[in-house]
Amino acid sequence: MIRIENLTKHYKKLQALRGINLHVREGELFAYLGPNGSGKTTTIKILTGLARSTSGDAYLHGFHIEKETLKAKRQCGLVSQTINLDHELTVYENLDIHGRLFHMPSRERKARIGELLEYVEIHDRRDSPVKQLSGGMKRRVMVARALMHMPRILFLDEPTVGLDPTIRRRIWSLIKKIQQNGSTIFLTTHYIEEAEFLAQRVAFLDEGQVVAVDQPQHLMSQFGAWALDEIANGEMETTYFKSREEANRYIQAQEGGFALRRVNLEDVFLSLTGKRVQPT
């Protein structure tokens, strides 16, 4: 569904992407993880036609993104990291303009808008100017707008950034619902728990390179099930255990402060790159 081959991107002296290779399957929810500046947004910008690659190829549902640009663009919907709705316009007008940009006939546009506003549970705000909506509502409108033309692939670039935990979970349910309806979802995030909860497979990106691709459970099981964080010599150290009992035995022999938790994708990324995905 999404095929990326040796994709590179240079901004003058900066090498943002250094030969990305990926294959995302149809109907998959794929998370693309990495710290800020690792190249996540650059990859999405290239795939959605907002930027040009320096070299390499990428295909969306078989259409080359630069040689068959318009066809490739029809395959995908994009929810950007920043809220890019027309604040002066109403929710309806924002969706209607999007439908027109994707050449949807009038009747189809009207029906689809009604359907989507129900879907994202915002139908009662249909005629409200976007500037009157809360952050969470704006995100839901962005998701509805991206789904307007019934794309096969949905790109979600940090869709929950800046939202409070309750709204974030609401957006997660919406993303799950969209995937269950058959869409392929390419999600970038630096919220580890978001990727763990949603994704079937994850790719870790570091300094413009993919350092690992696998199912979250496979990646995490290499470390065990439990992790113990403790401060030793002024640095945080983590020890991994296969079971909670094993961890408890270790704790009994220790003194001082520590925190026992389940192994997560952050541990995987940390071991691969020596960096954290989320800034601490």
């Binding site: 318009l70 029809r74 809220i83 940009l101």
Partner: peptide, 18 residues
């Protein structure tokens, strides 16, 4: 304003229009 402030230009660029 659409390009630098509201980022609407991205919406046009991502659409299948020339």
């Amino acid at each position: 304003i659409a390009r630098f402030y509201w980022r609407i230009f991205e919406e046009f660029q991502a659409a299948p229009i020339r």
